[in-house]
Design a protein around this nucleic acid. Structure first.
Lengths: 244, 244
DNA sequence: AGCGCATTACGTACGCTGTACGTAACTAGG
DNA sequence: CCTAGTTACGTACAGCGTACGTAATGCGCT
């Protein structure tokens, strides 16, 4: 009556880690695809048409199979997302750390940022990340290797890694969301900026926000996103650096 | 033929900031609700049943009106989200900064954290935040007031505020997501931890991740989420503090 | 005073989603 | 060889955001 008798049923009544599930059990027809095939198809769609286009129907069509066949490989859509994140995790190039943890963590961050630019949907899927996929484990181990030269407990090291990942996800997520919003506007960027600027200006001019008004007076110049990102990381690393 | 002749049509073909739109134009029947009524109804639903229960149909039912009537007040669902975030922004209690920017920013962060615990759906809506709602402006101005004692340009102050908000959102978002996941499990938390732990243990025991293995050996003790949060903020503020 | 029209209200309908369920074809283990 | 467990997939359902059409409403202008 319980999950014992139905080993590979669509939805189990017992916890399951997708990475622990074997791809093939032996009985039954030979599966037409591997999990990697499915992940790749989903990644292709997300890269080309955005995360919103990743539906069970589209992925199935991309693979050339029926929609419901996907559920033999992936119990819920959430798991498909996990497959996607793990798949692009393979793109992380690891190296032999040379003993400078600050430089290494910065390099990790920049590489992750580049990866997110290649796959702009990644930040949106990073919040509900809870599993330890194979490539996530590989990535974590590499970060720990980078921190061999860091003087602290593993607890602190994990906090440092979490902080760097969090900042990268947040910053790049914002950068990409802004770019995406501009791309999807049904009108021109100039019109958008004009309307929003007019509203903001009218609010600030009301006198209710004197410091905001002063801030707008300050000579800003164009924003260099990469420099902002770099500064943010430097500061975060400063916060963990006892020698500073 | 263009948006000029249809001043209050459902969807404009010209940019629009919802906060600049007047609640009442004069002509036509008196609206049955204010924007605040709608925001409150949506917030009530989100608090009680989660963000997923915030649908146009449910909000309309909560207000006691037809589904499509909502679109007279809110052009798209995304704007409803913006109303919600602004509505809870009213809960921020502001104070007169006394000249210690570190203490004040920490207090801001702790207050925001408490607000997010009261409204666990807030972090999920913070990523696509782009508008400057009335309460967001009020909040920003207050942060700037807290930073009067901070020696730096407004540019740097905005970077500091963005960093603090980002860290708060990320950390509290993770805390809440974990709690929510546990709450929604179709099986017990012990079962879940046992299965995930077994998988993780088997991976680590494979020898492929020696540092992860060492980390598991380290005596950890229970995790104090509030202490982790506090440490993260201290470190971030350290990174901006020239006196340290 | 009363006409005209912008606005509100809302029922209906469409295309889309995730996925439960039933059935037929297939294949490895006993 | 038989049979149990698996794969494949068509059908179906509930729910979503929202476009559109129609009826009722009441302010502003003549």
């Amino acid at each position: 009556m319980a999950g014992l008798a139905t080993p590979m049923a669509g939805h189990a009544d017992v916890p399951e880690v997708i990475w622990a599930r074997p791809e093939r059990t032996g009985r039954g027809p030979r599966p037409a695809f591997t999990r990697a095939d499915i992940a790749d198809a989903a990644v292709r769609i997300a890269d080309a048409q955005g995360l919103g286009a990743v539906t069970m129907r589209h992925v199935a069509a991309e693979l050339g199979c029926g929609t419901m066949s996907l559920y033999n490989y992936v119990p819920r859509k959430e798991d498909l997302y996990e497959l996607m994140v793990d798949a692009v995790g393979a793109e992380h190039e690891l190296w032999e750390p040379a003993g400078d943890w600050r430089a290494d963590m910065l390099r990790v961050a920049r590489q992750t940022r580049a990866l997110m630019y290649r796959h702009p949907w990644v930040p949106a899927l990073m919040s509900p990340v809870y599993g330890f996929s194979p490539h996530a484990l590989r990535y974590l181990e590499h970060c720990l290797a980078c921190l061999d030269s860091f003087d602290g407990t593993y607890g602190t090291k994990f906090e440092l890694i979490a902080m760097v990942n969090g900042v990268v996800t947040t910053y790049v997520g914002n950068e990409l969301a802004t770019a995406e919003r501009v791309r999807a506007l049904p009108w021109s960027e100039e019109q958008e900026n004009a309307v929003r600027g007019a509203y903001l200006g009218s609010q600030v001019a009301s006198g209710a926000y004197p410091r905001m008004a002063a801030a707008f007076m300050e000579d800003a110049g164009p924003i260099d996103l990469e420099a902002v990102f770099r500064r943010a990381l430097d500061r975060v690393l400063d916060g963990f650096d006892p020698s500073r």
